[in-house]
Every structure is written in structure tokens, then in C-alpha cells.
């Protein structure tokens, strides 16, 4: 609760401090002072700050953030229609990148110091230093435009079309971008575990390398891995705005950018609060998972 209250206060004061007066955006090209005042009154931004803050808190309590100031669309409707496209891209992206990163990290950790390890680590360092924007521009140009393997951009009307056709390239870009940091992180976690006594004991008992790595090392390395994966989940709610903009995916990330550009406070409020609540829930779930993975962990 204190965390959520902190987020509410932060977003409220940040918006009022740096967000700009929305009335001047909504008023159009020529607006008289009366028209500006009329808009401010209808949006409620003419009220004292404490009244506006109280309205915000009541909106959170009833989970109703009203309608967008610029399009008049209900905020709940915005989430209902934009979350699907975002999740269509981000859920497979998270699953694929996690599985690939785990496999690759285990491989390079196992062959530590080998040419494969060094080559992959150099590749990861280089890959991590390149901006996501470059990946998007190059992949879109090469794979979609030049080679024609994917659509350049777009979004269809069926789930299958979207997942298999339109989301494929955005997922590929996302996977490539997230692989490098994930492999580096998981590799160091695996290396820590592989030098533990229990690994030597398992090998001394005659267990196969596959069983040692996939069962014993992976399970003991699970806590930092779970932490890393779980911290990425709330981000699914906020979407991936660059990917969504370049590939014209009607997701929540694009909507957030639009809302910021238009000073559309109801949408900004809703996204911030939902992401904060999701973060709190995911953190709780992560704690419970730690306990399930390692009975030595005590929850207080």
C-alpha cells in the first residue's frame, strides 16, 4: 500500500509539474481565454490539487479512470483492445528469449574459457552495446524489405495471422535484443553454482553431466533467474513502444506514447497504476516461487 501511494503521488505531481496544461492542446488553433477555462473546467483541472488527487484515488478504488481526454474513448476500453496485441508479441518474446538464453548460458558456462564461450561472450557484449533502434531498422530493412521473409509492418484481424505473420519479426527483434544481457547474467549465475561443492559431489556420485546441469545446477540457479524473468512481466502491461511503433502494432506501448504526446492524463494514470499494481503482485508471486524452489527460503 505505501508503495502504491508513493507511485500515485509521484505520477500525480510529475504530471502536474511537467505534463503541461492539457487545455492548450485540446483548445485547437485559436482559443479564447473563456474557451480555455471552459476546457479546464470540464476536465476538472481547474480544481485545487488536493481535490484532483482525491478524485485520482477514488478512480483507483473503483478501477475506473474515465475517458481519454483526446479521443473520449473509455480507458478500460483502451486496455481491453490494446493489451491483446501487446501480449501477442511480448509473451512469446519472453518465453522464447528466456528458454534460448538459459540454454545458451548453460552451454557457455559448461564450456567456460573455450572458443565457443569467448565467441558468444564477445557477441553478447557487442550485441548489448547496440541500440534496439538499430536492430529494428536493420531487421526491418533486411529481413522484411530486402528478403521479403516478413511483412514490413502491420496487424491483421485474426490471432493466428497476428502471431504467425505480423508478430514474427517483432518477436525476433525482441529476442535478439534481450538474449545478450540474459545470457551474460545467466552464465555468471551458472558459473557461481558450478563451482559449488554439491556439483562436485554429484559428479563424484557418478551422475551424468546432463543431470548435473539441468537438475542440480539449474534448480539452484533458479532464484536469480526467476527474479530476472519476473521483473520483466509488469513491463508486458506497458508494452514495447518502439517495436509497436515501427511495426504498427496497436498495442498498449504505442497508446502510452500517444497519451504522453497528447498530455492525456487519464490514460497515463491508468497505465502507471496498473503497472505498479502488477509489479507488487509479481513481486509477491516471485517470493512464493522462491519458497517453492528452495524450501530453505523463509517468508516473513
Amino acid at each position: 500500500m505505501p508503495t502504491l501511494l508513493g507511485v500515485v503521488l509521484l505520477v500525480f505531481f510529475l504530471f502536474n509539474w511537467v505534463g503541461g496544461d492539457p487545455a492548450y492542446i485540446l483548445a485547437g488553433k485559436i482559443a479564447s481565454p473563456e474557451a480555455i477555462e471552459n476546457i479546464r473546467r470540464s476536465l476538472g483541472v481547474d480544481q485545487p490539487y488536493w481535490v484532483q488527487l482525491w478524485i485520482f484515488i477514488k478512480q483507483i478504488a473503483v478501477a475506473d479512470f474515465g475517458a481519454s481526454w483526446s479521443t473520449n474513448e473509455r480507458v478500460s476500453q483502451i486496455f481491453a483492445t490494446r493489451l491483446g496485441p501487446s501480449l501477442t508479441v511480448l509473451v512469446p518474446l519472453l518465453l522464447i528469449s528466456t528458454l534460448l538464453a538459459l540454454a545458451a548460458a548453460m552451454l557457455v558456462a559448461y564450456y567456460r574459457g573455450s572458443l565457443t564461450d569467448r565467441a558468444i561472450m564477445i557477441g553478447c557484449t557487442v550485441g548489448q552495446s547496440v541500440s534496439i533502434l538499430v536492430y529494428i531498422l536493420v531487421f526491418q530493412y533486411l529481413l522484411a524489405y530486402q528478403l521479403g521473409w516478413f511483412p514490413v509492418q502491420g496487424w491483421g484481424s485474426t490471432f493466428a495471422d497476428n502471431l504467425l505473420l505480423y508478430a514474427a519479426l517483432p518477436i525476433l527483434v525482441g529476442v535478439v535484443v534481450s538474449l545478450a544481457p540474459d545470457i551474460r547474467l545467466y552464465r555468471s549465475v551458472f558459473l557461481d553454482e558450478m563451482s559449488q561443492d554439491y556439483v562436485r559431489t554429484a559428479r563424484a556420485k557418478g551422475l551424468g553431466e546432463g543431470r548435473v546441469m539441468w537438475l542440480h545446477v539449474l534448480r539452484n540457479a533458479a532464484i536469480p533467474i526467476v527474479t530476472n524473468v519476473m521483473t520483466q512481466i509488469p513491463g508486458l502491461l506497458a508494452g514495447a513502444f518502439l517495436i509497436e511503433r515501427f511495426f504498427s502494432i496497436p498495442g498498449i506501448g504505442r497508446e502510452v506514447i500517444l497519451a504522453v504526446e497528447r498530455s492525456d492524463f487519464p490514460v497515463i494514470k491508468a497505465v502507471t497504476v496498473y503497472v505498479a499494481i502488477a509489479t507488487l503482485i509479481i513481486n509477491l508471486a516471485a517470493d512464493l516461487l522462491y519458497r517453492a524452489l528452495d524450501p530453505r527460503v523463509q517468508l516473513k
Binding site: 531498422l137 526491418q140 530493412y141 522484411a144 524489405y145 521479403g148 511483412p151 514490413v152 509492418q153 502491420g154 511503433r245 515501427f246 511495426f247 504498427s248 496497436p250 504505442r254
Partner: peptide
């Protein structure tokens, strides 16, 4: 009408005949 915010996306889509 497709909403495409990014110039590269619009330019490539046009060149591909989309």
C-alpha cells in the same frame, strides 16, 4: 488507412507496393 508513425516503415511499405 494504416497508421504508421515511423518514416522507415512508411517508406519501405510504399517501396514494396504495400
Amino acid at each position: 488507412i494504416s497508421i504508421m508513425e515511423e518514416t522507415q516503415s512508411r517508406w519501405l511499405a510504399f517501396q514494396r507496393g504495400d
